[in-house]
């Protein structure tokens, strides 16, 4: 099993929608969809909004790393609006350049250390939608944050 297959397998397990696109296909996708918050530096795509109590419909953010071991995306969320958007969007879209995939949890240890070395730091591991099983152990999504999560894997980056 390749590392990407491993990632996809774990990501699917938590109910994520995974799409594999080329950069061109991604740009077409971007044109079609209407996002309230966008933070995709690789394509110079930025749209800022401060999500409030009412939340926002969706958010599109680029990850810093993806971890095959657990199907996790790693997002530096120090930027407050990015943090609010990823916490409060109904649907979360994450852009993943394939080259950012690492194999194990420990492969991002240095990254977290670097990003928490200054005054403040906020590194988020996200693996699926916001979920709970607190009532009769029935799995229910969207208890506080996103109800759906999509990972867009860019196979040429």
């Amino acid at each position: 099993m390749s590392e990407l297959d491993f990632f996809l397998d774990k990501s699917k397990l938590v109910g994520n929608d995974n799409q594999i696109l080329s950069s061109t296909e991604f740009l077409t996708f971007l044109e079609k969809e209407d996002f309230e918050y966008v933070n995709v530096p690789s394509f110079n795509q930025l749209k800022d909004v401060q999500a409030g109590e009412a939340g926002i419909k969706n958010a599109l953010v680029e990850l810093d790393y993806a971890i095959a071991e657990t199907g996790t995306v790693v997002i530096d969320s120090l930027n407050e609006n990015k943090r609010l958007a990823t916490c409060l969007a109904e649907k979360l879209f994450v852009v993943m350049p394939k080259s950012k995939l690492v194999s194990r949890l420990n492969d991002v240890a240095d990254f977290i250390e670097e990003r928490t070395s200054d005054m403040g730091g906020y590194v988020a591991f996200i693996t699926g939608a916001s979920r709970t099983a607190d009532i009769e152990r029935v799995l229910t999504v969207g208890v506080h944050g996103p109800k759906e999560m999509t990972v867009i894997i860019l196979n040429d980056l």
Binding site: K10, T70, M119, G121, Y122, V123, A124, G128, S130
Partner: peptide, 14 residues
């Protein structure tokens, strides 16, 4: 395998 969120926070964030 892992929970939905694992969050690493250092002190004084914006």
């Amino acid at each position: 395998i892992i929970t939905s969120y694992t969050t690493w926070i250092k002190g004084r964030v914006p």
